[in-house]
Design a protein around this nucleic acid. Structure first.
Length: 228
DNA sequence: GTCCAGGGCCTAC
DNA sequence: GTAGGCCATGGA
């Protein structure tokens, strides 16, 4: 892994931002919707998550207590378009129970918890792994935790900047320990935009087939391995 | 028909 | 500790 004090993350960010502009994530109407979406998007394209979210909203039960109160088979049916719906119904219920019991279903109450403490609590919930926890922390709680997803591993690994097999926290530290681009002072804003830009790039170059020629980072692909 | 998507859990070594 | 299977729909 390249020295974490390197300038590559900031350089990549600036190229991506110039290529794709502000993404203004997360695509949701409320922090609660962000939390639900973070669970539903596990190993699933966002388009399918949107279908499931629309069904949940149409049910009239789109609240913490409302969703907890749904029979499991009804919840499964609403989640069907997002795939793995039985698994996700259990995971969503487990998360909402945690949210209700620990924070009274209050986003504000949850937000008052420190990021480190909250992250460890989130990881203790069945079905919430590091990526889902960080999505909730960053996009629902406005806490500065960089999200590492499959695109991040694939793209930055393909560039030779990180070991794609590295564990989650090491990859996260690589981004979090690096300086921000000049002019940016808020890490929440920076990480928010960065992950969204990586997903936008990933959608373009990682599916259906890898195509490095279309990669917005091509300009620094050639020099990346020697940069510091 | 086949492959894979903005993961995480469980089981077998 | 880690590799592999499993969940499951919908689009390319």
């Amino acid at each position: 892994m390249i020295d974490p004090r390197n300038s590559l993350p900031a350089a990549a960010y600036e190229l991506l931002f110039r290529a794709y502009g502000s993404q203004e994530w997360w695509p949701a109407d409320s922090p609660f919707e962000v939390m639900v979406g973070a669970i539903l998007t596990q190993h699933t394209s966002w388009e399918n998550v949107e279908r499931a979210l629309a069904r949940l909203k149409a049910s009239g039960s789109f609240s913490c207590r409302g969703l907890i109160g749904l029979p499991l088979d009804a919840l499964e049916e609403y989640l069907r378009p997002s795939g793995a719906y039985r698994v996700k119904a259990r995971r969503l219920t487990a998360y909402l129970m945690f949210f209700q019991e620990t924070y009274g279903g209050s986003v504000d109450s949850m937000r008052r918890t420190s990021g480190t403490d909250l992250r460890s609590k989130l990881l203790s919930v069945s079905g919430i792994g590091p990526e889902t926890a960080d999505c909730i922390l960053l996009y629902a709680m406005d806490k500065p935790w960089f999200v590492i997803d499959a695109y991040t591993r694939r793209i930055f690994g393909r560039l030779g900047w990180v070991d794609p097999q590295a564990n989650y926290e090491d990859l996260q530290a690589w981004f979090q320990n690096a300086p921000m681009p000049g002019g940016l002072t808020d890490r929440v804003v920076y990480y928010n935009e960065y992950h969204a830009l990586v997903v936008e790039l990933g959608k373009r170059v990682c599916r259906p087939k890898p195509d490095c020629a279309a990669c917005a980072l091509n300009a620094i692909c050639a020099t990346g391995k020697t940069a510091s």
